[in-house]
């Protein structure tokens, strides 16, 4: 057995680690732009940040197909998620309930993911964006539910068209995908209800 196919452990204490992680994700989406740290103690597989791996382990299971970049899907991360979540890994972004994308990758576009339907906007995808850092990048101003006035975030390592795509996503409200921007064990939530302003 090579390192590529060796599957590392998941949560040591699934009940409380997933509860703690869920509360961090809930706070992130309820108060967009606040930095939340997920519970420590998880060694993510190659290619996934700890926050992305923890979020998927907390939320994904056999009911939620996951889209991963092909390199991750065929590697250790894909095997790890198949084993621990029992989730199907799909090749078309439009079929996924959860997805992990790299902030700098040019494809797939955010519009390729399922934005829900007008009668069931909850059936949209949740996309986890892995960034180079959660600060030091281009600053954007957030407003909307969960934000008293405005908040500013500046995650680094995102493709040039990223914020324009996020702004287009929130234009379609109440349709749209919800985003989690993560690096290492921290994340920002960016639900579709958040309006974005910046120099993009």
């Amino acid at each position: 057995m090579t390192d590529e196919t060796l599957i590392g452990p998941g949560f040591a204490d699934p009940v409380f680690q997933s509860q703690g992680a869920f509360r961090a994700i809930l706070a992130a989406l309820a108060e967009p732009g606040t930095r939340q740290a997920v519970t420590e103690g998880l060694t993510p597989p190659n290619g996934l940040h700890a926050a992305a791996a923890t979020a998927l382990l907390t939320l994904a299971d056999y009911e939620t197909p996951i889209w991963l970049p092909p390199a991750l899907r065929d590697g250790a991360a894909g095997a790890w998620l198949r084993f621990h979540c029992g989730a199907a890994l799909v090749a078309e972004p439009g079929r996924a309930a959860f997805a992990v994308i790299d902030g700098l990758a040019s494809a797939p576009a955010l519009a390729d993911f399922d934005a829900g339907t007008d009668q069931f906007p909850d059936r949209s995808a949740t996309v986890i964006v892995q960034c180079a850092a959660l600060e030091g990048g281009e600053a954007v101003t957030l407003s909307g539910p969960g934000i008293p006035g405005t908040r500013t975030i500046a995650p680094a390592g995102l493709r040039d068209s990223f914020w324009a795509e996020v702004a287009a996503n929130s234009e379609a409200y109440p349709l749209g995908i919800d985003l989690l921007l993560c690096h290492a064990d921290a994340l920002f939530g960016l639900p579709r209800s958040t309006r974005i302003e910046g120099a993009f």
Binding site: P14, V15, F16, S18, Q19, F22, I25, L26, L29, A30, T58, L59, A60, D61, E63, T64, P121, D122, S124, T126, P145, G146, Y173, P174, D178, P191, R192, S193
Partner: peptide, 26 residues
């Protein structure tokens, strides 16, 4: 299980809660 519900049920409810937060009032 802790808090009565099984973990799969909690995941299902947690996913619903996150979508509910993302679309307030829906």
């Amino acid at each position: 299980n802790y808090a009565y519900l099984d973990e799969q049920t909690k995941r299902m409810i947690r996913r619903a809660l996150l979508k509910a937060v993302a679309v307030p009032g829906y």
